[in-house]
Amino acid sequence: MADRRRRWRSGAVALCLLLVTPAGCGGRTAADPARAEVQQVLDRRAAALLRHDETAYAATGARGTYANLRAVPLASWAYRVTGLRHTGATVTAAALLSYRVRGYDRAPVTTERTLALGRTADGRWYVASDRPAQKAGQQLWDQGAVSAARGAHSLVLGVGQSERELNAYARLADRAVPAVSGAWGTDWTRQVVVLVPRTLDAMAGLLGSPASSYRGIAAVTTGEAGGPARAPADRIVVNPEAYALLGDAGKQVVLTHETTHVATRAHTTPATPLWLSEGYADWIGYLGTGRTPAQAAPELSRAVRAGRVPADLPADGDFGFTGDPARLAQAYEGGWLACRMIAERWGEDRLDAFYRAVGAHGRRAGAVEDALRRVLGTSLRDFTDRWRAYLRTSLT
């Protein structure tokens, strides 16, 4: 399931009356020379990390990050200082860290960091600590030394797993990528990065959310929705505790589902309802498994057999991780059956075209209705009625 947290950016209005200086509203405060010096230290630190020069890295301060990142193939790594706070002889720097994993990321991952720096006896700055900013999620190397396993189409990064365990993830991911390409097409990177933290709590730390939000969730995909120009760097993040409870077939379905989110991300926009994005990912995930609707949709099947057929397609609010588990399961199952119905009634090519048409719509309102009319030749009311009838015939 995708972790579709939307980030809203608001502009800040600076009031001249609050910033009165002798030069008036256009005046400048004196530059802090320490800021440029700290930036230089971080530049040297980044360069040393990229060229694998541990001695040069250690000369800039604490070396824990270097050891934890040793197995990660980095294409870029850069800090940009955004703020500095002095406390006696030390400073605390706020910085944006941007990095790319070589061969996998077409755009950098950017995260906020807080760095504490001190001075040596001869006045040189050094990094004492580098940690996530207060409201930012952890990075995997914040949790310990990262191990890596490479597949033909995948890179699996983990903390606390054996080589055998990481290779098992890579094999499943390598099967997922061609399965997704066979259904969706090849207009995506056709490679995935899978993060395997040690525990559920560690997973929650990566996502910057309470562990309770993901209890029972086997994996999520992070990334920003948008058009192809955004070229996001997605990550599949595994909950090792829930994932371990699945059988081999279930593990494959989960990784294929999450890989579908990576493939479709550029065409998944705020106009795309969750019943479509999650249902489509499940549709590809279940392809070829032989699972019947009743087997793959047990919660919805029980409801339909009891005469409780949903009146409408699942709403985005039905997909909340912290709500009723039965309601969440029914939302996923309902979305999957909607996509399955499209593939059976109109064809798999039309399902693909419908997904893309919804995401390409300029606004959320009317996106589904317009795509239903143009691609499937139906209305939302007719489609919903067909879906409700499909639930009855498929699940009873």
Rank of each mutant, 00 (worst) to 15 (best):
Y390D: 15
W125S: 05
R345K: 14
R171L: 06
L17I: 07
A326W: 11
G307E: 09
A94H: 05
V238W: 15
A281S: 11
D349H: 12
R44N: 14
G279I: 00
A12D: 11
L49Y: 09
S10A: 08
R70D: 11
A48R: 03
R44C: 02
A183K: 05
K251N: 05
A338I: 02
Y214A: 05
P197A: 15
P270G: 11
L140A: 05
L157D: 01
D385C: 02
R327D: 06
E258F: 08
V238N: 07
T272K: 02
L206I: 09
E163L: 05
T186C: 01
R119T: 04
L351R: 03
R302I: 00
E241F: 06
L50Q: 00
G182K: 04
L255G: 07
D324P: 03
T21I: 00
A331P: 08
H257I: 02
R291F: 05
V127S: 10
S277H: 03
G185I: 03
F321K: 01
W8M: 07
T111C: 00
L328V: 04
A263C: 03
A170E: 05
L287M: 04
G205P: 01
I217Y: 01
P228Q: 08
V177R: 08
R374A: 10
A36K: 08
L328G: 06
F321R: 15
A116L: 12
H261F: 03
V81P: 00
L206A: 09
T82R: 15
R100M: 04
P270Y: 08
S277P: 00
Q252A: 13
A176C: 08
P22V: 04
G27I: 06
T21C: 03
D352H: 14
G323Q: 13
D43P: 00
A231R: 15
R302Y: 00
A170S: 12
C16S: 11
L207M: 06
E165H: 09
E278H: 01
L287Y: 00
A219E: 13
I342Q: 00
L351H: 01
A31F: 03
C25M: 04
A204K: 12
L18F: 13
V309C: 10
G377S: 11
A107T: 12
R356C: 07
D312G: 06
Q191K: 15
W8Q: 09
Y243F: 15
W387M: 06
P232R: 08
V146G: 07
A59E: 14
S379D: 11
A343T: 09
P132I: 01
A78H: 15
S147M: 09
L207C: 01
M341V: 01
A343K: 09
A353D: 14
T221I: 08
V91K: 09
G185W: 02
P228V: 04
V220R: 02
R119L: 06
A48I: 02
G247P: 12
A14C: 04
H261G: 04
A353F: 05
A338S: 12
A94L: 13
A249T: 11
W275G: 02
L313K: 08
G250Y: 10
W184F: 08
Y66L: 07
G226N: 05
V358Y: 10
R100F: 00
D382H: 07
T111L: 02
G377D: 09
W8N: 09
T92M: 05
V375T: 13
L115Q: 10
N167D: 14
G26E: 13
